[in-house]
Design a protein around this nucleic acid. Sequence first.
RNA 1: GGCGCGUUGGCGGAGCAGUUACGCAGCGGUCUGCAAAACCGCGUAGACGGGUGCAACUCCCGUACGUGCCUCCA
Length: 467
Amino acid sequence: MLRLHNTLTKKIEDFASREDGTVNLFVCGPTVYDLSHLGHAKTYVQMDVLARVIRANGYDLFYLQNITDIDDKIIVRSAERNVDWQELRTTFQDEYIKDMTSLNNTSVTEYARATDYIEDIISQVTRLVNGGHAYTIENDGIYFEIATFPEYGKLSGRSEVKKDDAQTRIDESEGKRGWNDFCLWKFSKPGEPVWDAPFGAGRPGWHIEDTAISEHFFGPQYDIHGGAVDLIFPHHEAEITQMESISGKAPLVRYWTHTGFLTIDSEKMAKSAGNFYTIREVIEKGYDPLAIRLFMLQSHYRSSINFTFENLDSAKNRLLNWRNIAALRHQTHDTLRDDDEKSTDDRSVSLYATSQALLEALNDDLNTPAALTIIDEAFSRIANAKLDDIHQHALTQLLETIDETLGLNIVQTTPDISDDAKRLIIERQHARTNQDWKKSDTLRDQLQKDGITVRDTPHGSVWEYSV
RNA sequence: GGCGCGUUGGCGGAGCAGUUACGCAGCGGUCUGCAAAACCGCGUAGACGGGUGCAACUCCCGUACGUGCCUCCA
């Protein structure tokens, strides 16, 4: 049974899908005006694990992610660079997908670009205008009137923010009926991207993109909406307000999940502070993207993560150690023995229960730190065992479960070594039996050059991938 | 100012009212043809002050510090 923390109730709840066997998940994607940074990596890795865990529970999951490809930042940036906005957004959408792929965030069923759903957006704005929820400000745009939706604030608990709050800014747009009213559709200025609409040519506001896209695929109600905490207000609050006003059906979303922020050197990541890292540049420093992924899984998704290279190194080393354990599956001589016979052998290392324990930890509101501990404990039992006592099938199955749920690609990144290398290892074993240390060491050096480290344990020689 | 979160050993990071979390790094030792690994041990974790309990890192209250949102933001 999957349990998830729900921002709406601030409680961990048992998960039940709206329709048996299927789950609809929407996660807010990025605005594609620049390379993605480590904060994006955190959110999307953790949401990817959520998707994997839902599927591991047997659900048929549709994971929808929007791409904001029209907004002020894109317009400004394309003007700065003197490139067409469509070229800019296509470039950075491609870069985003590239980064996600390298992090192995491959669970998304559909990436939906806002500008591909203008019809749906116009339809929503039209319905809001006709329903008396929206009004026009001349030469500005169409705004949602929050006073028409009494439940505004039910997600963020921020319904009665007072105007005289010290930090509340006065919105630049004059003519708004409510100080908090938000824009649904902006009338374009000359030279800006523009789409025709019955209520005036222009471009979509931010919040309406997501509800138009989610309605297009899921209808007015669906199961889970994810994103980082900073989106709770006003973005997700606005989504609820829009869609529930349009459909009259509540709740828009049954479970809201939010990821904590990533900080760098304990400070908020900001270009001005000089502590801003893109995913790309960390990879270019030589870090395995899967080590970045493991780093993100070392803490709970709702916690914040403090990024330092020291901490990333820690994850990197842990991953390398795991891979060497995984490589043992190529070195067991299991084929000589029957699996069933083995599983009843007291000395064999029991691993079947580990996969189950792993799933249970993840079902507990995605407790990835606990999941990693379960893996560590199982792996240390393996490391201490004789090769013959390692149940090859069980180990392989465990690795597959880890990859399926955590997406660490352990199976794929731990290939068997070549037959030639195997021959050298056997040759070296003979040399050692004959106490021909010179030959033994020469062969070890030779293997080292091929990226294979051999170490001799009391139970025999074992090979590992060289660092 | 409003609302929220956090404070655990060198670093990261969980669970749990009473028993070694775990990982990464360090030091000492055992073992070993060498190398490595592994194992054992060590550095006596729980911001501070109260409270409840036989017992608190774990529950309650307060204080301090940090941090997030309130504006675009993953």
